[in-house]
Design a protein around this nucleic acid. Sequence first.
RNA 1: CCGGGUGUGGCGAAGUUUGGUAUCGCGCUUGACUGGGGGUCAAGAGGCCGUGGGUUCAAGUCCCGCCACUCGGACCA
Length: 478
Amino acid sequence: MAKEKNVERITNMEDDFAQWYTDICRQAELVEYASVKGFTILRPYGYAIWENIQRLMDAEFKKTGHENVAMPVLIPESLLKKEGELVNGFAPEVAWVTMGGSEELEERLAFRPTSETMFCDHWSSILQTYRQLPMLYNQWCSVIRWEKTTRPFLRSREFWWQEGHTIHETAEEAIAETEQQLNCYADFCRDVLAIPVVKGRKTDKEKFAGAEATYTIEAMMKDHKALQSATSHYFGDKFSRAYDVTFTGRDNTTQYPFQTSWGSTTRLIGAVIMTHGDNNGLVLPPRVAPIQVVIVPIAAHKPGVLEKAGELRDRLAAAGIRVKLEDSDQSPGWKFAQYEMKGVPLRLEIGPKDMEADQCVLVRRNDGEKLPTALAELESAVQTQLDTVHEMMYQKALENLQEHTYEAYSIEEAKQLQAEKGGFIKTMWCGDLECELKMKEEGGMSSRCMPLEQEHLSDVCPICGKKAKYSIIWGVAY
RNA sequence: CCGGGUGUGGCGAAGUUUGGUAUCGCGCUUGACUGGGGGUCAAGAGGCCGUGGGUUCAAGUCCCGCCACUCGGACCA
């Protein structure tokens, strides 16, 4: 048997899922801990995934007319305090700047935990007429929240994200924007990350501080826990009023615009890891994989092998595929294991035997299938396999989601299902906070969302027995 | 923030019970042979033992404080 080297340090996900996750983050060279507690460094390979997410998602935002801006990283305390709920929601986790050089500042400045206030402040100075509306802004940046417990990608004191902020003339338009962006996220997860999600609305308890409504997409990880993967908020005119953002309407009266915000973060990378990864390491969806095909030459010293491998690399690169020729002098077996750890969707093996037959061998990361492929049709075969891998990954994740979603008709049943199987538990709900708290306390689950696709499971809330208003999903969340 | 665990070359560990001047594997460097699942051999480089204090002739080892990471919980998106 071959000796195990690097991978021996990866914990099996069945033994300890949390440790498996941490091992992958480090072994696949995605992140490293910084010397500031709770902060992480995104290493080149991890950042490359984020760059692909940014590039593809940003293109979607642009299609619907959004423009990117850059706001200051610091927010004056007085400005942050103008909207009460937002302040209360974020107060425990705001970091402050109190010194400028050696001078104490007259007013302390908050590192942005989110930028609603900055956008509102800006709009209050530039908005004059309904003709300027809507304003559809987005920014890619990092924010700081002083979290107590941190984990790579899932929760850290600084994280990278995009935050969209828009204002509209009417409530209807703003609500439509909120829905559009939620759908944008859900489609992105499906089409780019191969992650199925449940779209829904948050309960009052779980919604964003200051929002009128918060919409969410919830994904299920391989350990059957829930991960909130993006959110979209409708604010009504609450912030507009708090920050005195006004415009002159069509009827020549002063009006407050209606506002939305929506965000997704590097947490999406955590979702990718826990949705697709296996005991050999990362499994990356082809559309965001920094390397889509790794070429491993076999017997590279034999005449013509490296030249042929280089030729194949050039052909694939010319076809727009992200390809890497692994021509180091490591053994082929080492390379196989290494690029499996890094989740590269396709491996291309080329050696003397292949060259005689004018073929190469493609190997899929997700299922290990080896596919002898004629060199003549390499580009199309690779493209087809990349699409196949994406589709297979999505289907597998969808099965996981569906097979671990259960219906419950009593709190005992919900409790038992969660304890024995985990996953999403669907019930009806009366809408009362007490029942939500009871489910948390007794069942150990928080509400994930009230799905947009509402179902009628029964007439009553299984927790209190009163008339049910909504169907709702419960789960243990990250 | 509460509770458990862990900090020893880049990584993983042994050594701590019984104090005596740091060991092993991997990785790294150089060279040769190899090459279709983590190859072989040879010669090398690399360590203020997380940190601050204390006890002692002597501390990786004993005592006290602190810090970081990690697992679980609470809090939180």
